[in-house]
Structures are given as C-alpha cells and as structure tokens.
C-alpha cells in the first residue's frame, strides 16, 4: 500500500506533505505510486476537499473516515477543531499472486474496520503533534510547517500504524 499524506489549511492551502509506503507485513516503507500517476495525488486530494466541506457539518467527529474514492485511490479525512484538514490518500498495491495470505491485511482492504482503526490511530498521533505545533507562539495560522521534528514524528506514526 502506498500513502500520500497532506495537511490542508483553512484556505485550502497545503501546510505539509509526506509520501510513504506501508511498513507492515514486511513492507519497506517506500511509496509505490505508478510514475505516471504520482503527480495526480495532489489533484485527487485537492478535489476531495469539496466532499470534506459537505461531510464536515454532518458529524462533529474529528475523524471523518474514508470520504472519497478515485479509482483505486481512497481518501480518508481528519478535521481539527481549527478547520485544518488532515488528508490521507491510500492506494492499495495491485493484488499480488498470493492473495490468500494478504486478504486480511490492512493493505489489501482499504475500507475494512481494521484499516479505519489504523488510520484513526495514525491521525490521532499526528493531531497530538499538530496541537504542539500550533501552540508554538511563533506559529501563525495557515503557515507551512517546516519543522524536521514534526516530519520525523509523522514518519514514526506512519511506520507504527500503517
């Protein structure tokens, strides 16, 4: 499974981006988007922002689950109190020959409850670090997050849960 994670500000501006692959089931943590599809990730995530605005007023939950799908790309969303969106695009790798073993893994079932739960935990951890970031008195709303420590925390959360 390959992932593309983006944090989108209140003006639909990107604040943070990170691309990674699954580290579970012997994954090496490297994103495997097809070369001709990779540049589409940003467009897919951006187009799902419209869906986010519809869904966000339906439920007060922060984790809005999987909200959008574009062919084999699934987009999950987490909305912070300050209307900042965490969007995770997950694209399951094309089914391998040995499907029997992989059928229960979160990589093969993008909408299963296990996957939802794993993504929720990932978002939860990112949210904690996000709150720490915005509590920085020198951080202004909608500013890009450049801290390498924040990045390494997101990398660690991705390794841990996805």
């Amino acid at each position: 499974m390959s992932y593309y994670f983006a944090i989108i500000g209140t003006l639909d501006n990107p604040l943070f981006e990170y691309e990674f692959g699954t580290a579970k089931q012997g994954g090496d943590g490297i994103a495997r988007f097809a070369e001709q599809a990779r540049h589409m990730n940003q467009f897919i995530v951006h187009s799902s922002l419209d869906i986010v605005e519809e869904v966000q007023w339906g439920s007060g939950q922060m984790y809005l689950k999987c909200i959008d799908r574009y062919y084999n790309n699934y987009v999950s969303c987490f909305m912070t109190g300050g209307n900042v969106k965490f969007l995770l695009l997950h694209a399951p790798s094309t089914p391998s020959t040995n499907t029997t073993r992989a059928s229960t893994s979160i990589a093969a079932n993008p909408t299963s409850p296990q996957t939802e739960e794993a993504i929720k935990q990932f978002f939860g951890e990112v949210y904690e670090n996000w709150v720490k970031t915005i509590m920085n008195p020198f951080y202004n709303v909608n500013a890009e997050v450049k801290s390498p420590i924040f990045r390494s925390r997101v990398v660690a959360a991705g390794k841990k849960y996805l």
Partner: peptide
C-alpha cells in the same frame, strides 16, 4: 483563541 480551541478540544 485559535490556539486554545484546538488545545482544549484535544
């Protein structure tokens, strides 16, 4: 206020 909103929700 912006910062407290997220901190207190957290």
């Amino acid at each position: 206020g912006l910062k407290l909103l997220d901190l207190l929700l957290y």
